[in-house]
Design a protein around this nucleic acid. Structure first.
Length: 574
RNA sequence: GCGCCCAUAGCUCAGCUGGAUAGAGCACCAGGCUUCGAACCUGGGUGUCGGGAGUUCGAAUCUCUCUGGGCGUGCCA
């Protein structure tokens, strides 16, 4: 049950009845208590369109509106309609909400959506740059599934290309020297650097590397075996990271670049048949209107290089074709950083031209910025290397452990370990999710792990406070039967906020900005904290006590569900 | 050169199809634990929303322009 939607639809109809059809009511949550709980902003525009005085139209609407949920509806300012909800309405709705598994969410028709996220390059270890795509994409997947949709997680891992030449040549070399390969592969970052360095300094090795690329592409069995071994090792590293980060991706979600190898020639041939290919300087290119490069020259999208190789545009086109035509999805979301915007625009434009996508299919790029250090420079180690994601996770957990030890020294060590894992990982992910930046943004351990303000620990703390009430009183909330009655101001505020959970979820799916849900949960936790201070729960008596217990439990459930949708776990104590 | 994105409080950031007096957190100050967890709460002020012009009853939001920054711009991904 979505209050905002209900009001909107009622006022939309009233506007139509008053002669202003196709004028949206534009209902929003009011920012100030004086303006009621909700306000309709669309009346002024509607009045203009039908040549009426806005206050007069608003007055007419207020007369005709049938809003049993409202205690008071009034015209304000130049023509706003302010809606004050009825206290008993909020209480009754909340009583219903607490019995609802989905906490107010109504599952309507189900769509199938591909979510393309994480997509690490398997030649190297996952680094901090993968955190955003992985975290945001995973939250989007969880949210869509919660809404009843079918989600196809697509981990478009980079497991193919020239970069593997030197890696395979180096594996070969290690084998010849009789060294233990698994030891060497335990740190992929070092392995990659060693192989690269050798290629730079040793011409024989460089030649072997190039040969390995050709052998790999030609399907040489010994070469493929080495490649498989490397990929297996790298995928295993990734899975460890996903598991530690509580990311829902599994091996079953991997649809790597190499899986499209057999589709590349057919894709290029199809484009050629459609007359989209133009050979320029030996490369097969697609030139489309609206894409201009340097000196206003047409900008090509190269689908086959002059040496016959395929750039990632070809692979990505094959992936679009597969998703649109084989999987037949109506929607695909690409969580890829903002520097790839042009590439994705070209990709989708070519896909439209080639009829891989029809009008009904929505393929979208959801961009985000790269991570910077506090000094505004790229987040790298001192020697300029990428910071390993595994190291970042470990540091987050260690910092959380220190903090838990200080705040709650009495906890057993294994309990502390478990708690710091949830807090550290939660803080790390929440810091990513709570920002809504398509541009670059600043990564700061202190802000994220200071455990003050708008952070995961604050939300987790609110949750543990509630759970503590039930633990202490030995009450099982599922056995509570009475109804909820809201009376005190903070009670009412909290009750309404809980009813608005569904509005936050709906808002997220418009542009898949998880920060809307983060902000909602932060505000919810804040209101709960005030409620907790001003309204005694266990010390209250009779129905008030019961009602407050139910409010607290419902808050805990919404917090837990909301955090779960963000991919953040909860703990019972911290 | 061209294209895309961005500029909001000292710092990090919100600001939802244009709405009422632009909001949080951090930091700073003052209060609040014999009562459910003080990782908390209550109060305190801070803005030429980068500059200018335009559209509008109404602009941080839309348009144009200027300044400053980031990124991209034919054979890496």
């Amino acid at each position: 049950m979505n209050i905002k939607q209900q009001l909107e639809s009622t006022i939309d109809s009233a506007l139509s009845a008053a002669g202003a059809s196709n004028c949206p009511a534009i209902v929003k949550q009011s920012q100030k208590a004086a303006f009621g709980h909700y306000q309709a902003n669309g009346v002024m525009d509607a009045a203009k369109q039908i040549g009426m005085n806005p206050r007069e139209l608003a007055g007419t609407l207020v007369e005709s509106l049938n809003l049993p949920q409202a205690e008071k509806v009034e015209v304000a300012g130049p023509g706003f309609i302010n809606i004050h909800l009825d206290n008993s309405y909020i209480s009754n709705e909340l009583t219903k909400l607490r019995k609802d598994e989905l906490l107010g969410v109504v599952r309507e028709k189900s769509n199938t959506t591909v979510i393309d996220y994480s997509a690490p390059n398997l030649a190297k270890e996952m680094h901090i740059g993968h955190l955003r795509s992985t975290t945001i994409g995973d939250a989007a997947a969880r949210i869509l599934e919660f809404l009843g949709h079918t989600v196809i997680r697509a981990n478009h891992m980079g497991d193919w290309g020239a970069q593997f030449g030197s890696l395979l040549a180096y594996m070969d070399l290690i084998g010849q020297e009789g060294q233990e390969l698994s030891t060497e592969l335990s740190d992929l970052e070092v392995f990659y650097r060693k192989a690269s360095a050798l290629r730079e300094s040793d011409e024989v090795f460089a030649k072997q590397s190039r040969e390995y690329v050709v052998r790999l592409q030609n399907g040489d069995p010994q070469c493929l075996e080495l490649w498989q071994q490397f990929i297996e090792e790298s995928v295993s590293h990734c899975q460890t990271v996903y598991d530690r980060l509580n990311i829902t991706l599994t091996r079953a979600d991997i649809k790597a670049e190499s899986s499209y190898n057999d589709d590349l020639i057919p894709v290029v041939n199809e484009l050629d048949r459609l007359g989209l290919i133009e050979v320029s300087d030996g490369a097969k290119c697609v030139f489309l209107d609206g894409f201009k490069g340097k000196d206003d020259k047409p900008l090509p999208a190269i689908v086959q290089k002059s040496d016959g190789g395929f750039p990632y545009m070809a692979t990505d086109l094959a992936a679009v074709r597969f998703r649109a035509q084989n999987l037949k999805v109506g929607e695909a979301l690409y969580f890829i950083d903002a520097r790839q915007t042009l590439h994705l625009r070209q990709l989708f434009a070519i896909s439209r031209e080639a009829k891989y996508l029809d009008e009904s299919q929505s393929f979208r790029h959801l961009p985000f910025g790269v991570i910077l250090k506090e000094d505004g420079k790229p987040f790298k180690t001192r020697d300029g290397a990428d910071v390993k994601l595994a190291d970042v996770i470990e540091e987050a957990i260690n910092r959380a452990y220190e903090l838990v030890s200080v705040k709650n020294p009495g906890l057993a060590d294994d309990v502390k370990s478990r708690i710091s894992q949830v807090i550290g990982v939660g803080a790390l992910k929440y810091a990513e999710l709570t920002k809504n930046r398509t541009t670059d943004y600043i990564f700061n351990w202190d802000t994220m792990l200071s455990f003050d303000g708008n952070t995961a620990p604050y939300l987790l703390y609110a949750y543990t406070r509630i759970r503590s009430i039930f633990r202490r009183s030995n009450i099982d909330p599922s056995t509570l039967e009475s109804s909820i009655t809201l009376k005190e101001p903070t009670e009412l505020q909290l009750g309404l906020k809980l009813l608005q959970f569904v509005e936050a979820i709906d808002a997220v799916t418009e542009d898949y900005q998880a920060n809307i849900l983060c902000n909602y949960l932060f505000e919810l936790a804040g209101i709960f904290m005030s409620f907790y201070e001003s309204c005694p729960i266990l010390n209250a008596e009779g129905p008030v006590r019961e009602s407050r217990l139910l409010i607290a439990d419902t808050t805990a459930r919404v917090l837990k569900q909301g955090l779960d949708l963000l991919g953040i776990e909860t703990v019972e104590q911290m």
